[in-house]
Computed example of a mutant assay.
Amino acid sequence: MNKSLQLKPSLSAEEINTWLARLKSDQPEIRARNAAAEIGISEGELLAAKVGQEVTRLSDDPEKILREIADLDEVMALTRNEHCVHERMGIYENPSFFQHGSMKTGLFVNPDIDLRLFMSHWAYGFAVAEPSKLGIRKSLQFFDKSGQAIHKIYLTNKSNEVAYDDLVAKHRHATQTTTIEIESYPPKSEEKPDSEIDWDTFRASWENLKDTHDFFPLLRKFNVDREQAFRNVGPHLALELDNSAARNVLDLAMASECEIMVFVGNRGCIQIHTGIVKKLVEHGSWYNVLDPKFNLHLNEEDIARSWVTRKPTEDGIVTAVEIFDTTGELIVTFFGKRKPGDPELELWREIVAKLPAKEVANVA
């Protein structure tokens, strides 16, 4: 962070906008996320400070809003984490939401817009109309309780702008405040010591999985961290790869025209692309897919560890390439294209077989 901008944590909307104006005068193209980091606040707080100008606060019922996004026709869906951005063009058709005790989840399952939603984290929503080189760019943006972005929906030249304006007017929050209450998430808990885990039983449970969706409950049952499990189950189930794995997957998938699935998420949303990738571009530390309907931006400098994992299902083994940051958070996950009831693509397995394992230094 710029030391000159290390401010007190409690800033008024006027102070935030003053600092933002100074930043934009020096860096006209600075993005909201980066500007917020420079100022020392969350992106959600930055947007809230502009309520009444180019930002409208939306109601506290994101499910109702999401159920109506299809009226906007084709839009661009954006989900990101600290290290990777996933952008997909499409129409938000076939929404469904579920209540599991206190947990509320949602789904969009379509060829273009394919999302897994964890609604308990959706705290704030805004409609944004920001100036750009091509005119006013309109979007809907959703944030968690810490002010971090969960999901954004941008209008395109194929969108229904009248429907967007109607939706914003309909779901306008009754109180257009310029501040939001920010609450930090607790730090990640420490791993349970390896010595306290029955690895033989855990490994046998992994080997007897029937569905990939049963994997997270398995980790929770044994109180095991994801990478901790990978380190202890054996290379037939999890093998650490060289950190060129993500780039190699994209390169090999493009060269072979293999349809892949690309998962990128955060605590509130996972966004999925399924298809062939065609245009790969390196820009600084970022490796990018720049296709007409799908863009991916991956910061390779932030990759700490890469794994290939194999999970049994009723349809056979499902192979994933999982990419992690230094804190053990998933950055991006790759699969071969697959639907329930279908076996994994053999072409995908051939790609994974070509990925080099991590070199382990010999210890004298």
Rank of each mutant, 00 (worst) to 15 (best):
132 S>H: 11
132 S>M: 07
132 S>Y: 09
133 K>P: 08
133 K>A: 11
133 K>R: 14
134 L>S: 15
135 G>I: 02
135 G>S: 09
135 G>H: 05
136 I>D: 05
136 I>E: 12
137 R>K: 15
137 R>S: 08
137 R>V: 10
138 K>W: 03
138 K>M: 04
140 L>M: 00
140 L>F: 12
141 Q>F: 01
142 F>K: 03
143 F>S: 01
144 D>R: 02
144 D>Q: 01
145 K>Y: 00
146 S>M: 05
146 S>H: 02
147 G>R: 03
148 Q>I: 11
148 Q>Y: 12
149 A>F: 02
150 I>H: 02
151 H>L: 06
152 K>T: 00
153 I>E: 00
153 I>Y: 07
155 L>C: 11
155 L>K: 07
155 L>P: 04
156 T>I: 11
156 T>L: 10
156 T>C: 11
157 N>K: 15
157 N>R: 15
158 K>Q: 09
158 K>W: 08
158 K>C: 07
159 S>Y: 15
160 N>D: 13
160 N>S: 08
160 N>L: 07
161 E>R: 12
162 V>P: 02
162 V>D: 09
162 V>K: 15
163 A>K: 14
163 A>S: 14
164 Y>D: 02
164 Y>V: 04
164 Y>K: 06
165 D>S: 11
165 D>F: 10
166 D>L: 13
166 D>S: 13
166 D>I: 13
166 D>Y: 14
166 D>K: 14
166 D>N: 15
166 D>P: 06
168 V>I: 14
169 A>S: 13
169 A>V: 10
169 A>I: 05
169 A>C: 03
169 A>Y: 08
169 A>H: 12
169 A>T: 11
170 K>C: 05
171 H>P: 00
171 H>E: 00
171 H>A: 01
172 R>C: 08
173 H>G: 13
173 H>F: 10
174 A>M: 12
174 A>P: 05
175 T>N: 14
175 T>D: 15
175 T>R: 15
175 T>I: 11
176 Q>E: 12
177 T>N: 14
177 T>Y: 09
177 T>Q: 13
177 T>D: 14
177 T>C: 09
